[in-house]
């Protein structure tokens, strides 16, 4: 019997448009449903959980749900994208700490923005170029994403908490979040 395997283009060619419009920002994050998209790279889960904790403490978000990609080097599959768009008000995706996964992480953020969901993509600063190149290929050269200090994979849980705290100002900037005085 012949079976067909679906191939996913790592450059996201099917997603390319000239749309450089960000989705509508919510203003306040209080009560919102946050999706965390784990790309399965080492420490992605722990970093995202720490970011979820920060968002809870600083903004009183409503819920946090972790989602997991099945492969870090390609864009989020349509089914998972639709699930997140349906169930969340914003999404944080991490972590791009290699060439392919940093490009895919930035592409995921652009995909969510184009489907109406504010998104924060996090890569390590060693792979900033890969993320920027992907954004340019997507027709979104100024797409704003976060570059965390490299490395991520070797950090302890405590160090990841600190890294998450360092990233929060950027998360709030990208989401256009009001910060409590």
């Amino acid at each position: 019997m012949t079976t067909m395997e679906v191939l996913i283009d790592p450059t996201g060619a099917s997603e390319r448009t000239s749309d450089m419009t960000l989705s509508l920002r919510p203003g306040t994050l209080a009560g919102l449903r946050v999706g965390l998209l784990d790309n399965t790279k080492p420490n992605a889960t722990t970093l995202l959980e720490a970011l979820g904790d920060e968002l809870r403490q600083r903004h009183g978000i409503g819920s946090v749900t972790m989602y997991t990609k099945d492969y870090f080097g390609t864009p989020v599959k349509d089914e998972l994208r639709d699930e997140i768009v349906r169930e969340c008000d914003l999404v944080v995706t991490a972590v791009g700490d290699c060439g392919s996964c940093s490009a895919a992480t930035v592409l995921d953020g652009i995909i969510f923005e184009r489907h109406g969901l504010p998104a924060v993509s996090i890569v390590s600063d060693s792979f900033l170029m890969s993320g920027q190149a992907m954004a340019s290929l997507q027709g979104f050269p100024g797409y704003d994403f976060l570059a965390a200090t490299h490395p991520i994979a070797s950090l302890s849980a405590e160090e990841l908490k600190n890294r998450a705290a360092e990233l929060m100002a950027g998360v709030e900037r990208i989401l256009g979040a009001e910060v409590a005085a």
Partner: peptide
């Protein structure tokens, strides 16, 4: 070398051009 970590060729070409 991490076999799965290589950036897609168009991404590498875009970086090199820049």
């Amino acid at each position: 070398a991490c076999a799965d970590c290589l950036s897609p060729t168009p991404v590498m070409e875009a970086i090199l051009q820049k």
